[in-house]
């Protein structure tokens, strides 16, 4: 039996979060004395799939069926179940993404597997038990969860696991068919609308984020956020009040009912730090807060802070980054 890893691809490339998932899976395989096989979904190239060897993957299964380019819940679930059967996999690792959660939850019922999502660490396997650590209470706590049964599915939180890079190692790419039929594509999307990404960095995948709140005073001032984001290679985000008044699109809203991010660096500009906002960002590794109100609650959750006017501070930061490079 090998550990099965689900890698999501987009535009030919393996997503960053899936490199982390692959690294997680190969380390679990090593713990259990077996190998890790990946099954790829989305649009991939053979060369990029072979490079998954660098993350410790020995073999990659790829079904070139063109309708698998877009996410189709029914078809993806069947494909991964078939791959798990072929590899006799007892452990399946996927990303805690919208795709991973949609497929993982269905698979857990189909394969009678236990499931843990939002997992942040490698499992502990002392004394025959299998325990994973996962985020809970909207980033305010962790839970060690014991997974019962023979089969287990683990959805790994983005940016929690360091991706391995063992240069020069390659995986064997094998074509694979799950014998998908039209019925498996019944819930295929009628249309896929991709966002216009400022700077080309997807917020859920970003390892740096520059975020603005009401303190930015209006959408016309977002160039200050974008300039700094571009200078440091970050994605842009916003608080809920900002997306509620349509200064910025909903998909940039981070917080309790928006996107949860856990980047290495989160820079909050003119955001007071309401508890609902913190719930979406509190697992970021380094938090920087810029706010003119020294009493803003966000400073309590921050690692670095500047008490000052964002309109004065942001251009100075962008300038300082340019001077570094």
């Amino acid at each position: 039996m090998s550990v099965l890893v689900v890698v999501e691809c987009d535009g030919g490339e393996v997503k960053k979060s899936s490199l982390e998932v692959a690294s997680y899976g190969s380390q679990v395989a090593q713990m259990l004395g077996t190998t890790a096989t990946a099954v790829a979904v989305g649009e991939a190239t053979e060369a990029n799939l072979a490079k998954l060897g660098e993350q410790g993957i020995s073999k990659v299964l790829y079904d070139a069926e063109p309708r698998l380019k877009d996410f189709v819940n029914g078809a993806y679930t069947k494909l991964i179940a078939a791959a798990a059967q072929k590899e006799d996999s007892k452990i399946i690792v996927l990303a805690n993404s919208n795709i991973g959660a949609s497929v993982g939850s269905r698979l857990s019922v189909r394969l009678q597997a236990s499931l843990a999502t939002n997992v942040v660490e490698l499992p502990k396997t002392d004394g025959g038990s299998f325990v994973v650590k996962r985020g809970a209470f909207s980033g305010k706590a962790f839970a060690d969860v014991k997974l019962e049964g023979e089969r287990k599915i683990i959805a790994v939180k983005k940016n929690s696991i360091e991706a391995l890079h063992e240069a020069g190692k390659t995986a064997q790419v094998e074509s694979f068919s799950a014998q998908l039929t039209d019925a498996d594509f019944a819930d295929a999307p009628k249309q896929v609308v991709m966002q216009d990404q400022a700077g080309g960095i997807l917020l859920p995948e970003a390892d740096k984020v520059v975020s603005g709140g009401r303190g930015m005073k209006g959408p016309e001032n977002w160039n200050l956020i974008e300039d700094l984001a571009k200078a440091i290679g970050a994605a842009t985000a916003c608080s809920k009040p900002v997306s509620d008044v349509d200064w910025r699109p909903h998909h940039e809203h981070v917080g309790q009912t928006g996107i949860t991010v856990s980047p290495n660096l989160y820079i909050a500009c003119g955001i007071s730090g309401a508890i609902q906002h913190l719930a979406g960002v509190n697992s970021s590794k380094v938090i920087v807060v810029i706010n003119k109100d020294p009493e803003a609650p966000f400073f309590k959750a921050a690692d670095y802070g500047i008490v000052g006017d964002v309109f004065d501070v942001l251009p100075k930061l962008t300038q300082a980054v340019k001077e570094l490079s």
Binding site: A141, D144, V145, K146, L147, V289, A302, D303
Partner: peptide
Amino acid sequence: RTAVAEYALPPKKQGVKL
């Protein structure tokens, strides 16, 4: 199929450097 073995709080922040 799962059971929580233990909950834990995240490590405390060091405090903000201004």
